[in-house]
Amino acid sequence: MGFFIYFVFIGIQLTSTLATDYQIPLRCFLQSPTFLDKFDTNSDVTLPRFNTLRVKNVTLDKDDWVFETYNLDYDGLDDAALDEFGFNLNTKDAKITFHTDLVAKHLYKTSGTLFSKPIDGEGHSVIKLSNVQYSFKINFDIIENDGRRYIELKDYEYTYVVRDDGDFALTHLYNGNKRLSNSMLCRMNKNWRYLTTNFGRIFMDEIASNVFNKFKDYLLAMPLKDCYNC
Protein backbone atom coordinates (compact mmCIF):
# COMPACT_ATOMS: atom_id res chain seq x y z
CA MET A 1 0.00 0.00 0.00
CA GLY A 2 1.39 3.43 -0.87
CA PHE A 3 1.33 6.43 1.43
CA PHE A 4 1.93 10.05 0.49
CA ILE A 5 3.75 12.15 3.07
CA TYR A 6 4.38 15.82 2.32
CA PHE A 7 5.73 18.91 4.07
CA VAL A 8 5.59 22.55 3.04
CA PHE A 9 8.07 24.78 4.88
CA ILE A 10 8.51 28.47 4.04
CA GLY A 11 6.95 28.03 0.63
CA ILE A 12 9.19 25.08 -0.29
CA GLN A 13 7.50 21.71 -0.74
CA LEU A 14 9.29 18.50 0.17
CA THR A 15 7.47 15.45 -1.16
CA SER A 16 8.12 11.84 -0.25
CA THR A 17 6.15 8.96 -1.70
CA LEU A 18 6.56 5.60 0.04
CA ALA A 19 5.58 2.60 -2.08
CA THR A 20 5.48 -0.20 0.45
CA ASP A 21 3.43 -3.22 1.34
CA TYR A 22 3.12 -2.26 4.97
CA GLN A 23 1.45 0.48 6.96
CA ILE A 24 3.35 3.28 8.68
CA PRO A 25 2.27 3.65 12.31
CA LEU A 26 1.97 7.25 13.51
CA ARG A 27 4.23 6.51 16.45
CA CYS A 28 7.00 5.41 14.07
CA PHE A 29 6.62 8.37 11.74
CA LEU A 30 6.85 10.84 14.63
CA GLN A 31 10.28 9.38 15.47
CA SER A 32 11.52 9.37 11.88
CA PRO A 33 14.18 11.72 10.43
CA THR A 34 11.62 12.83 7.83
CA PHE A 35 9.68 14.48 10.63
CA LEU A 36 12.27 15.29 13.30
CA ASP A 37 14.86 17.01 11.12
CA LYS A 38 12.67 20.14 11.16
CA PHE A 39 12.96 20.43 14.95
CA ASP A 40 15.54 20.63 17.70
CA THR A 41 14.73 17.63 19.88
CA ASN A 42 16.03 16.47 23.24
CA SER A 43 15.57 13.56 25.60
CA ASP A 44 12.72 15.33 27.39
CA VAL A 45 10.41 15.13 24.39
CA THR A 46 7.71 12.54 25.05
CA LEU A 47 6.32 10.71 22.06
CA PRO A 48 2.50 10.82 21.97
CA ARG A 49 0.99 7.58 23.23
CA PHE A 50 -2.73 7.07 23.04
CA ASN A 51 -3.12 3.70 24.76
CA THR A 52 -6.75 3.25 25.86
CA LEU A 53 -8.70 6.50 25.65
CA ARG A 54 -11.13 6.67 28.57
CA VAL A 55 -14.19 8.92 28.54
CA LYS A 56 -16.61 9.25 31.44
CA ASN A 57 -19.86 9.49 29.44
CA VAL A 58 -21.31 10.48 26.08
CA THR A 59 -25.05 10.83 25.41
CA LEU A 60 -26.57 10.64 21.95
CA ASP A 61 -30.06 12.13 21.61
CA LYS A 62 -31.02 12.40 17.96
CA ASP A 63 -33.94 11.46 15.70
CA ASP A 64 -35.97 10.03 18.62
CA TRP A 65 -33.13 7.71 19.67
CA VAL A 66 -31.42 8.16 23.04
CA PHE A 67 -28.19 6.21 23.59
CA GLU A 68 -26.46 6.99 26.88
CA THR A 69 -22.96 5.59 27.36
CA TYR A 70 -20.78 5.44 30.48
CA ASN A 71 -17.14 4.56 31.21
CA LEU A 72 -16.13 4.39 27.56
CA ASP A 73 -12.83 2.77 26.57
CA TYR A 74 -11.60 3.44 23.03
CA ASP A 75 -8.82 1.17 21.73
CA GLY A 76 -6.94 1.26 18.43
CA LEU A 77 -5.34 4.69 18.22
CA ASP A 78 -1.86 3.40 19.01
CA ASP A 79 -2.09 1.25 15.87
CA ALA A 80 -3.14 4.15 13.63
CA ALA A 81 -1.41 4.27 10.24
CA LEU A 82 -0.40 7.54 8.60
CA ASP A 83 -1.87 8.54 5.23
CA GLU A 84 -0.87 12.20 4.96
CA PHE A 85 0.91 14.77 7.11
CA GLY A 86 2.03 18.32 6.38
CA PHE A 87 2.64 21.87 7.60
CA ASN A 88 2.71 25.21 5.76
CA LEU A 89 4.56 27.87 7.73
CA ASN A 90 3.39 30.64 5.39
CA THR A 91 -0.34 30.03 5.68
CA LYS A 92 0.00 28.50 9.17
CA ASP A 93 -2.13 25.48 8.53
CA ALA A 94 -1.54 21.76 8.78
CA LYS A 95 -3.14 18.54 7.60
CA ILE A 96 -3.06 15.03 8.97
CA THR A 97 -4.91 11.94 7.78
CA PHE A 98 -4.68 8.49 9.35
CA HIS A 99 -6.69 5.29 9.62
CA THR A 100 -7.13 2.51 12.14
CA ASP A 101 -9.52 -0.09 13.52
CA LEU A 102 -11.40 1.13 16.58
CA VAL A 103 -13.06 -0.76 19.43
CA ALA A 104 -15.33 1.03 21.92
CA LYS A 105 -16.42 -0.75 25.13
CA HIS A 106 -18.86 0.84 27.55
CA LEU A 107 -21.99 0.61 29.64
CA TYR A 108 -25.13 1.80 27.92
CA LYS A 109 -28.76 2.71 28.43
CA THR A 110 -31.04 3.23 25.45
CA SER A 111 -34.61 4.26 24.75
CA GLY A 112 -36.75 5.77 22.01
CA THR A 113 -37.04 4.65 18.40
CA LEU A 114 -34.52 3.25 15.94
CA PHE A 115 -35.33 2.06 12.41
CA SER A 116 -38.98 2.93 13.15
CA LYS A 117 -38.96 0.34 15.96
CA PRO A 118 -39.08 0.93 19.72
CA ILE A 119 -35.76 0.28 21.44
CA ASP A 120 -34.89 -0.03 25.11
CA GLY A 121 -32.28 -1.75 27.20
CA GLU A 122 -29.41 -1.35 29.62
CA GLY A 123 -26.17 -3.30 29.79
CA HIS A 124 -22.74 -3.61 28.20
CA SER A 125 -21.82 -2.72 24.64
CA VAL A 126 -18.87 -3.48 22.36
CA ILE A 127 -18.68 -1.60 19.06
CA LYS A 128 -16.01 -2.53 16.49
CA LEU A 129 -15.31 -0.28 13.52
CA SER A 130 -12.97 -1.43 10.76
CA ASN A 131 -10.77 0.99 8.83
CA VAL A 132 -11.82 4.32 10.30
CA GLN A 133 -10.16 7.23 8.53
CA TYR A 134 -9.71 10.62 10.21
CA SER A 135 -8.72 13.77 8.30
CA PHE A 136 -7.75 16.93 10.19
CA LYS A 137 -7.27 20.50 9.02
CA ILE A 138 -5.47 22.44 11.74
CA ASN A 139 -4.57 26.11 12.19
CA PHE A 140 -1.48 27.08 14.14
CA ASP A 141 0.71 30.01 15.15
CA ILE A 142 4.47 30.32 15.50
CA ILE A 143 5.14 31.44 19.05
CA GLU A 144 8.37 32.48 20.77
CA ASN A 145 9.50 31.35 24.18
CA ASP A 146 12.97 31.95 25.66
CA GLY A 147 14.26 32.98 22.26
CA ARG A 148 13.06 29.81 20.52
CA ARG A 149 10.15 29.39 18.11
CA TYR A 150 7.50 26.70 18.42
CA ILE A 151 4.44 25.52 16.51
CA GLU A 152 1.32 26.02 18.63
CA LEU A 153 -1.77 24.29 17.27
CA LYS A 154 -4.82 26.56 17.69
CA ASP A 155 -7.99 24.93 16.39
CA TYR A 156 -9.10 22.23 13.99
CA GLU A 157 -11.80 20.78 11.79
CA TYR A 158 -12.05 17.09 11.05
CA THR A 159 -13.96 14.54 9.04
CA TYR A 160 -14.19 10.79 9.51
CA VAL A 161 -15.45 7.82 7.56
CA VAL A 162 -15.79 4.14 8.48
CA ARG A 163 -14.65 2.42 5.31
CA ASP A 164 -14.97 -1.32 5.83
CA ASP A 165 -17.39 -2.54 8.51
CA GLY A 166 -19.13 -1.93 11.80
CA ASP A 167 -20.21 -4.47 14.40
CA PHE A 168 -22.56 -3.68 17.30
CA ALA A 169 -23.00 -5.97 20.29
CA LEU A 170 -25.35 -4.85 23.09
CA THR A 171 -26.28 -7.08 26.01
CA HIS A 172 -29.70 -7.12 27.67
CA LEU A 173 -31.68 -5.28 25.03
CA TYR A 174 -35.44 -5.44 25.67
CA ASN A 175 -34.80 -6.79 29.17
CA GLY A 176 -33.10 -9.83 27.69
CA ASN A 177 -35.81 -10.73 25.15
CA LYS A 178 -33.72 -12.77 22.72
CA ARG A 179 -36.06 -12.51 19.74
CA LEU A 180 -36.39 -8.74 19.92
CA SER A 181 -32.69 -8.30 20.71
CA ASN A 182 -31.53 -10.40 17.77
CA SER A 183 -33.90 -8.59 15.43
CA MET A 184 -32.63 -5.11 16.44
CA LEU A 185 -28.95 -6.12 16.45
CA CYS A 186 -29.38 -7.62 13.00
CA ARG A 187 -30.80 -4.32 11.76
CA MET A 188 -28.00 -2.36 13.40
CA ASN A 189 -25.25 -4.51 11.90
CA LYS A 190 -26.80 -4.52 8.44
CA ASN A 191 -27.04 -0.75 8.61
CA TRP A 192 -23.67 -0.02 10.21
CA ARG A 193 -22.84 2.63 7.62
CA TYR A 194 -26.06 4.53 8.36
CA LEU A 195 -25.41 4.36 12.10
CA THR A 196 -21.78 5.47 11.92
CA THR A 197 -22.56 8.28 9.46
CA ASN A 198 -25.66 9.69 11.14
CA PHE A 199 -24.99 9.01 14.80
CA GLY A 200 -21.24 8.52 15.15
CA ARG A 201 -20.04 12.11 15.25
CA ILE A 202 -20.61 12.71 18.96
CA PHE A 203 -18.46 9.66 19.77
CA MET A 204 -15.77 10.48 17.20
CA ASP A 205 -15.47 13.99 18.67
CA GLU A 206 -13.86 12.51 21.78
CA ILE A 207 -11.16 10.83 19.72
CA ALA A 208 -10.53 13.92 17.58
CA SER A 209 -10.08 16.11 20.66
CA ASN A 210 -7.67 13.63 22.21
CA VAL A 211 -5.54 13.35 19.05
CA PHE A 212 -5.40 17.13 18.62
CA ASN A 213 -4.29 17.72 22.22
CA LYS A 214 -1.62 15.01 22.03
CA PHE A 215 -0.10 16.57 18.89
CA LYS A 216 -0.36 20.06 20.38
CA ASP A 217 1.63 19.05 23.46
CA TYR A 218 4.17 17.16 21.35
CA LEU A 219 4.93 20.11 19.06
CA LEU A 220 5.14 22.59 21.95
CA ALA A 221 7.93 20.46 23.40
CA MET A 222 10.14 20.84 20.29
CA PRO A 223 11.49 24.20 19.05
CA LEU A 224 11.94 24.70 15.34
CA LYS A 225 15.49 24.59 14.06
CA ASP A 226 17.01 28.01 13.41
CA CYS A 227 16.75 27.61 9.64
CA TYR A 228 12.98 27.24 10.01
CA ASN A 229 12.52 30.13 12.43
CA CYS A 230 10.65 32.41 10.06
Rank of each mutant, 00 (worst) to 15 (best):
D78Y: 04
F115T: 07
L82H: 03
E84A: 13
N57G: 11
V58E: 04
D93Y: 00
D93P: 00
D93R: 00
T97S: 15
I96F: 04
T110C: 05
G123D: 10
W65S: 08
F39G: 02
N57W: 09
T100A: 12
F87K: 00
A104C: 13
L53C: 01
L47C: 01
F85R: 04
N42H: 08
T41P: 00
P118S: 07
F87H: 00
T97N: 11
T46W: 01
L89T: 15
T59F: 12
N88H: 00
D63T: 06
N131W: 07
R54N: 13
K109Q: 14
K105S: 14
D64C: 09
F85K: 05
F39W: 02
Y70N: 15
D44S: 15
E84F: 13
G86H: 06
A104V: 14
N42Y: 04
D83F: 08
V55W: 03
L82T: 05
F115A: 07
R54L: 09
K105T: 15
A94E: 01
L77C: 02
T59H: 15
E68T: 12
F98S: 04
A80Q: 08
T100L: 09
L114K: 06
T59E: 11
A94W: 00
T110Y: 01
F39K: 02
T52C: 02
R49S: 10
L129D: 10
L102W: 06
D73W: 06
S130H: 13
D44M: 13
K128I: 09
D73K: 14
L77G: 04
N57M: 12
